[in-house]
């Protein structure tokens, strides 16, 4: 599964567990408008660390806070390179 698909899959999974409805996702959508709140995103990042073996948001001291879904996916795609 591609990185992007894994992320989408896990977003849906976390939303389900937290009783949230996921908005139709696109790269320009603000991450916090996706249906996941800060806690949901923190959980998502921990799950993805398990699946993808990387956490781009704690790996370096320099944190770029992702604003859009596209930013979020890009952080993983860059991290995997």
């Amino acid at each position: 599964m591609s990185i992007k698909l894994t992320i989408m899959d896990q977003m849906a999974q976390v939303a389900r567990e937290h009783g949230k409805t996921l908005a139709p996702l696109n790269d320009d959508l603000a991450l916090l408008d996706s249906g996941l709140d800060s806690l949901g995103i923190a959980v998502l990042v921990a799950r993805l660390e398990d699946r993808l073996g990387v956490d781009p948001f704690t790996a370096s001291e320099e944190v770029q806070f992702p604003v859009t879904v596209g930013d979020f996916v890009k952080a993983y795609e860059n991290g995997a390179r």
């Binding site: 806690l39 995103i41 948001f57 704690t58």
Partner: peptide
């Protein structure tokens, strides 16, 4: 706790 940039910490 495990450190999280989004919520400060999460529970493991």
């Amino acid at each position: 706790p495990k450190r999280s940039p989004f919520t400060g910490a999460i529970v493991i």
